[in-house]
Design a protein around this nucleic acid. Sequence first.
DNA 1: GGGATACTTGACCAAGTGGTCAAGATTTGG
DNA 2: CCAAATCTTGACCACTTGGTCAAGTATCCC
Lengths: 227, 227
Amino acid sequence: MRGSDADNTIILADRNDGAGTVRPARVRSRAAMEQRILAAAAAVFSEAGFDAATTAAIAERAALPKANIHYYFRTKELLYQKVVADVLESWIERMDFFTPEADPATALRSYIHAKVTSARCYPIESRVFANEMLHGAPYLRRFLGRKLRDRVDEIDAVFAAWAKDGKIAADVDAHFLMFTLWAATQTYADFGVQVSAVLGKDKLADADYERAAQQLTALVLRGCGLR
Amino acid sequence: MRGSDADNTIILADRNDGAGTVRPARVRSRAAMEQRILAAAAAVFSEAGFDAATTAAIAERAALPKANIHYYFRTKELLYQKVVADVLESWIERMDFFTPEADPATALRSYIHAKVTSARCYPIESRVFANEMLHGAPYLRRFLGRKLRDRVDEIDAVFAAWAKDGKIAADVDAHFLMFTLWAATQTYADFGVQVSAVLGKDKLADADYERAAQQLTALVLRGCGLR
DNA sequence: GGGATACTTGACCAAGTGGTCAAGATTTGG
DNA sequence: CCAAATCTTGACCACTTGGTCAAGTATCCC
């Protein structure tokens, strides 16, 4: 299971690197190595969680000797923090559909679609996040209580504005709606085994994700009085 | 091998103690010890998952020497299987609201309420389940693909009957509705940290769970064309 | 070229891990 | 009462863990 780590654009893009032109192969190589290790680490952490993940497993996945991993990331904890930070970034990024000017139905439809798509395309990231949360979010608590909370409060304000304009049912609490949307979409990544077992399939097909998005969208739009 | 697997009817122990009068103190004591260990184990497994949980931690939680744990449960794996089996039973038990005779709105309301209540009262059980699923459900796959799948298919048939009688919208797919309900209710146990952080609270209060149930119920009932 | 710097890696270590064991304590049934 | 069965527990073991280290190799810049 070693090869094929070349395609790891997945998690995070090249941070800056604007000045990278001067630095020759070295810097590029270091960034590439870090990327390779981070991808392997994300996969292992997503399957095992922080404690149960072993640096040996990460090394094997990255097809590198273990000592080399520790050269780039001094400790397992540092490596994990980087993985979580990267995952987080891509997680919050997708919440930009809710603005006062937007049409509620369109915003919800787009958001659900985006979330289901990332459950399909980036299940590793979703599971890293789920593991961290399930174990009490020791590395994320601060973020959750600040940045995420603020963002959801903003969305709540948008919903209030929509309700005022009669564009959405007034009794919908945006906080709890978000909890439902997060749970109902991420479940296709985090608990994919359960879903596919109940549907009687080995693996979910694209059509299943589409149907999931369509069903959830219909439920939520009607549920918010938008149909 | 004095381990005496004789009484363990594979899955789950006798809840009932009615006939306990004949059996002298020994049996009662053994059952009590097993229960005590199982409770400690469930707590530890729910926080750490199978691999990261240590028998030492379970022993400490049960206030027993580690060797004593191994006397009652030969291996960590056996102990885990018992915990999972118990959790599973209480999980599936709560799905009996959906019958053709029932009123759809009432059934959905009751089910959501029951699920949110168990997220509040039995978060440990929910998290054990979530951990197992997140790690690929090695011990549950068989169950998921059989018993649970059958149960959901039955519910699907009930929904079809309801739709035929015009008691519910015809385009609601019961499978995906169940996925949504499971996710949206269990999230208050599994990802409770996230929810409480976003709500700006240290811990969720009863009122929060009530509001969660009420909001979800409203969304789902309207979403199914029942309001 | 050559000295400095960056990277690689097999060998190693202290601290745990799940699990065993044997010697003792307690309870049982007769 | 006592011998057999059951339970308790500290000491112990083979193995894995995250992390270190020193001896090497490749690359850099002058």
